[in-house]
Design a binder for these strands. Structure first.
Length: 117
DNA sequence: ATGCTGACAGGAG
DNA sequence: ACTCCTGCCAGCA
């Protein structure tokens, strides 16, 4: 592996959290992924909560777009994190994510589909 | 070691 | 569509 990859090995935590961060880092701009979706990618479809927890512990130094990870209903994180859901929504809007009239993300349009459409 | 917690999800009523 | 209940599993006291 190249030097940059080795650097990532050093930066990303080992184990489940590290895998979560690695995947989250791959979410393209303008798209969002769900906790359960990421859990499924890790072959642990029952670990959605752990994914959410990993996001909460999100190391800011890694440049992880944790605002692009939402629940399956397309709802943003509660106000006690992120400095308010408004902040998260502003980030997503700036990236081109579209919202429905009820304030939820238009998941049908913006959910990340790594395996192709 | 034991028990509680949580940025979730799926099924049942 | 909404609420309630249960399963999950890594950290932390």
């Amino acid at each position: 592996m190249g030097r940059s990859e080795k650097a990532l090995e050093l930066v990303y935590p080992a184990g489940f959290f590290g895998e979560v961060y690695r995947i989250a880092a791959g979410i393209p701009t303008g798209k969002v992924a769900t906790y359960g979706q990421i859990a499924a990618m890790l072959a642990s479809p029952r670990s959605a909560r752990v994914v959410g927890w990993a996001m909460r512990a999100c190391p800011e130094g890694l440049n992880i777009p944790c605002h692009r990870v939402v629940n399956k209903a397309g709802e943003l994180a509660p106000d006690h994190v992120f400095g308010g859901a408004e902040v998260q929504r502003a980030y997503l809007l700036a990236e081109g994510v579209t919202f429905l009239d009820d304030g939820r993300i238009d998941m049908k349009r913006c959910m990340w589909m790594p395996s192709g459409a």
